[in-house]
Design a protein around this nucleic acid. Structure first.
Lengths: 202, 202
DNA sequence: CGTCGTTACTTAACGCCGTTAACAAGACCA
DNA sequence: TGGTCTTGTTAACGGCGTTAAGTAACGACG
């Protein structure tokens, strides 16, 4: 069992090491050569497992999307009956993920479109499953008459945009330092819910 | 009068050329050497006018902030009496600026924090003046009883985050292609207003 | 046993990058 | 006239992503 690192193991090692370096040193500091040095191989070895640097990051993005989806599903499962409470939990889960995994979040959502050119379309579609969870809550809410939306697809993206804006501004430290993170988050969620639930009085 | 390009002129030429290259080729394609080639000087000449690449971009950021502020001020002046209409116009102006100047917007708000480390604090403060225009509308609205906000500073950032999220997702082409830009924008503005103006029925 | 192809990995190199050091030519001024 | 400041240059450093070429170990097969 305790054989030498096999091919698949090395791929796994590259991914794990890259993720750790990403969290510790940040995206800007990451290079193929540094990853290679960290795992004790030459830089060109990485190219045996990933077509190029973008492909390596795409694999990490996919993992990040899966993690996010898992957290959203968990929030969803906690409020099966109440779409408003569910939407609120989803908003909290999204923001929480973004703030707790800033480096993950950066490559997942801030990586420049130029790096995404080679990103396969089917993975883009899988990433959209995260939004489906939010839209499902919206649809439930509309059907139960507690939410209003002329187009749930559009409203879902609007909600996503609001959450993404808050996360990315906070992570980039662009928000007025006199504002506590939790206040901005709480108010963002409140705004978001108020935007969908006309009857809400909070 | 038609002398050789003076020192200040070359600085201006560098800034203008960089801005044009930025719009034409994008941020990722930009290098000191390419800028130098475009203006017909050696790369090291740029360092006579800007401490480094970041400083050059900081100067562009400042110009962009001034342009954005001018557009916001214009929207503000168009609705002196009605804070709700003013806030709506401000939201539209912000989004419009972001979508019409994607490369400007990128360096202004998407440039990685690492590049901003040397960004002087006073310029950060000047950048915040853009938000002051929004907050002024909020304060007016609250005073007139047509808006509600427990903390206008927090609410201002929440609004900003929602607008920024929409702009950056649209510019990054991350929004579902079946959603028209103008629909997302309209719904974002509507959500934003509904979040602040409890009496609004639209 | 020997050879052959495959796999896993290396070193060397290419052409970029931001940035610095060293130097040259003209302007200005004592 | 001579010295210094300004404005520009070329050459170089170390780093980057990536590719080309080579090597060493290994399993299969005659």
């Amino acid at each position: 069992m305790a054989e030498r690192t096999s091919s698949a193991d090395l791929r796994r090692l590259i991914l794990d090491t890259t993720r750790h370096l990403l969290v510790e040193k940040g995206y800007a500091d990451l290079s193929m050569r540094k990853i290679a040095k960290a795992i004790g191989y030459s830089a060109t070895s990485i190219y045996l497992h990933f077509e190029n640097k973008d492909a390596l990051f795409h694999a990490l993005i996919e993992e990040g999307m899966e993690r996010l989806l898992a957290e959203l599903k968990q929030a969803e499962a906690a409020h099966p009956g109440d779409p408003v409470a569910r939407l609120e939990a989803l908003c909290q889960a999204y923001v929480h993920f973004g703030l707790e995994n800033p480096e993950y979040y950066e490559i997942m959502l801030l990586l420049h479109p130029a790096h995404m050119a080679r990103y396969p379309a089917d993975k883009f579609r899988r990433a959209r499953r995260n939004l489906d969870v939010i839209e499902a809550a919206l649809i439930d809410g509309v059907n139960q008459g507690v939410m209003q939306a002329t187009n749930t697809r559009v409203s879902t993206s609007v909600i996503w945009a609001a959450l993404h804006g808050a996360v990315s501004l906070l992570n980039a430290k662009r928000v007025d330092i006199r504002i506590a993170h939790k206040d901005l988050i709480a108010e963002t969620v409140r705004h978001t819910l108020r935007g969908c639930c006309p009857s809400l009085e909070r």
